[in-house]
Design a protein around this nucleic acid. Structure first.
Length: 421
RNA sequence: GCGGCCGUAGCUCAGUCAGGUUAGAGCACCUGGUUGUGGUCCAGGAAGUCGCCGGUUCAAAUCCGGUCGGUCGCCCCA
């Protein structure tokens, strides 16, 4: 809309203004996530919104769709190529390496809630600026860490009111005896069966054979039913690791479905890959996902340092999750003041209440009693504290219970006790 | 990056097909009915470059073209 008129603006395509009351839900959900992650020992981390472009090129992989065509990349005044982060893992690993956190106790467990940026066509549940909450456990390849990370995400989603289904797979590690060997095998198999594949998929499997499993073309779907699956072709070490991850998930009663076709879009994933799916997300069904990235540290020039993590799309959580109590933060008391002198008294009262942790608000628009009572109602306050000339001379306020409509006089000094919870 | 659908008050939409007096409704907002009492009701008020640009026409919200935006899907992903 704001194309040729400098007085009229709109937010850039694919971005959103987050306004009340939705912003209350957004904030409550973010807090719940970080609290929930903290319970499992994941400390908050915040990295820059932009990084040297190389961090993503080398970390996420130039072959990925994200790096190849979705990054917001720009040159700063010093001629450096910078990129608005399209995902959270590579920056966290970069920060950890830069500050030597890997020389302390391992694994390093970190959690974030941050904005990400990808330039793609917006649709339901997909924006150019979007928010992710996620955790990373870096420095251990023990299968119980995998189970822990997966369980933390699964439990948070359930507590938040999303009913996630967990899809699980192992995509092996980058070695001829494992994933690379499987990829060769799959590629050969695809070539042998090319006749029965959809035309578009025939072109695609050369660059990324695993993607063929995601095809929605009926012919391809049918053919792929008998294709060799990665789970059965990973090396012994990866197979045992995967079995151990599953055993630990069973131990803590986290239900999952093995999906041998689950492939993730970022190049750094190894071994365990998982996705949380839910309904109500439009064309998408993933509310979040993650996996192991045992080679990422080395791609960024660090030492061998295995890691695993997940990212959940906050916008998608909000789509999949019903509104619930406690998402907003209504004030407890709303002070209605009649006249200038009463307004000054009201300001002292709301300040006193706030200083002892009781949510309090007052009218600032100079409206009459009726308007202010309306304001008290809208604020969601449980009590209206009314102060007029009568109250001022008596040294007490009239406190009205907004639910029952009962009113009683309370000395100024005792207001906090009366409206406190 | 590609395709379908859609842009009319803050919001949800009617009106567009068959162009024609001051462009409507509901919700929300403000005021009054109630000189100091919200949530119900009644009355009134304010609020719109009909996304934008151009074309056709005596006349365009309405028809045509373009453009921007939204939405849904493809690709891919959170």
């Amino acid at each position: 809309m704001a194309d040729d008129n400098e007085r009229s603006f709109s937010a850039p395509r694919g971005t959103n203004d987050l306004l009340p009351p939705e912003s209350w839900r957004w904030q409550a959900t973010t807090r719940r996530a970080m609290d929930s992650f903290a319970l499992a020992g994941y400390a908050p981390v915040e990295t820059p919104l932009f990084e040297h472009t190389e961090v993503f090129e080398r970390g996420v992989g130039e072959g990925s769709e994200v790096v190849g065509k979705q990054m917001y990349t720009f040159e700063d005044r010093g001629g450096r190529s910078l990129t608005l982060r399209p995902e959270g893992t590579a920056p966290v690993v970069r920060a950890l390496l830069e500050h030597g956190l890997d020389r302390g106790p391992l694994p390093v467990k970190l959690a974030y809630a941050s904005a990400m940026f990808r330039q793609e066509r917006p649709q339901k549940g997909r924006f150019r600026q979007f928010f992710q909450v996620g955790i990373e456990a870096i420095g251990s390849d023990g299968p119980i860490v995998d189970a822990e990370v997966i369980e933390v995400g699964w439990r948070f989603l359930r507590d938040a009111g999303v009913e996630p289904r967990l899809l699980l797979n192992s995509i092996g590690h980058l070695d001829g005896s494992c994933r690379l060997g499987y990829l060769d095998r799959l590629r050969k198999w695809l070539e042998e069966n090319a006749e029965t594949l959809d035309e578009e998929d025939r072109d695609r499997f050369a660059t990324n054979p695993l993607r063929t499993f995601d095809s929605k073309e009926p012919a391809t779907v049918e053919t792929m039913r008998s294709a060799p699956v990665i789970t059965e072709h990973v090396c012994d070490s990866c197979r045992k690791h995967f079995e151990a991850v599953r055993a630990s998930l069973d131990d803590v009663s986290v239900p999952y479905d093995i999906d041998p076709t689950l492939v993730r879009g970022l190049d750094y994933y190894t071994r365990t890959a998982f996705e949380y799916v839910a309904d109500g997300l439009g064309a998408q069904n993933a509310v979040g996902g993650g996996g192991r990235y045992d080679g990422l540290s080395e791609s960024l020039g660090g030492p061998p340092l295995p890691g695993i993590g997940f990212a959940l799309g906050l916008d998608r959580i909000l789509l999949a999750r019903p509104a619930s109590e406690g998402d907003d933060a209504p004030v407890q008391a709303f002070v209605v003041a009649l006249g200038a002198e009463a307004a000054r008294a009201a300001f002292r009262i709301v300040t006193d209440l706030r200083s002892i942790g009781i949510g309090a608000d007052m009218d600032h628009s100079g409206r009459g009693m009726k308007g202010q009572m309306k304001g008290a109602d809208r604020s969601g306050a449980r009590y209206a504290v009314i102060i007029g000339d009568d109250e001022l001379s008596a040294g007490e306020a009239t406190i009205r219970d907004m639910t029952s409509g009962e009113q009683r006089p309370v000395p100024f000094a005792e207001i906090a006790r009366s409206v406190g919870r």
